[in-house]
Amino acid sequence: MKEITLGQYYQTDSVLHRLDPRVKLIGTFCYIISLFIVNSWPGYVAAGIFLAVMILLSHVPFSYIVRGMKAIAFILTVTVLFNLFMTPGEPLVSFWKLTVTREGLSFAVKMAVRLVFLIIGSSLMTLTTTPTQLTNAMEDLMKPLKKLHVPVHEIAMMMSIALRFIPILMEETDKIQKAQMARGADFESKSIIQRVKSMVPILVPLFISAFRRANDLAMAMEARCYHGGEGRTRMKPLIYQRRDRIAYGVLAAFFCLCLSLRLLKF
């Protein structure tokens, strides 16, 4: 229970781990966009090579990354099947009422490749970045929004507090559940309605306790001079290093490549 890590951070030392989280956040964003820019096989090969190099650089075992794919296997299959059978065009194979077209086949495979790359790319970011670094990066990147009166610092603070309290509240849920079980509550029942009903007596005390904690925490934060983002300094400020500039360069080169592949209709 205490080992819960959100976003499944994989602890090791690599270039990708040391990279500034802002670079990784922007990088992932650019990579996803470029996946939708390219629409030809050379483009996908380029994206694949880029991803493979990143995985090698990250020192995260490939099996570990693939494990994360299980969650989307179902969505992937459905997408592929729909594209396969629903695209009109030149028929290849047909049985019963279903027809596979040449266009459908190529479209389905492209879609599958796109989705797989997208998921691997974004999970590579969460695997190499701690949640704290991510919230810091988001706070920094969203800073321009402050002019539009978006409470950027407050959002980042809320995110990091939520991350801190997830394991505590999970433990508490466990405790409440055990206490209810000790008094004969039934959580093993087969019927879904029964199961949902039995959640109510867990959620009510959990909510009350969460509010009490929030109250205590607010007081503790005020006692330690917290008064919003105004005039606050950082213990670990994000500063771009040489490797971050190089990474931005590589990223720009890859993005230009994808763009030119699309424009030159390769």
Binding site: T132, R164, R213, D216, L217, A220, M221, R224
Partner: peptide
């Protein structure tokens, strides 16, 4: 309560 006054991760 120590849990309710620690902010950092």
């Amino acid at each position: 309560n120590p849990d309710n006054q620690i902010i950092g991760q």
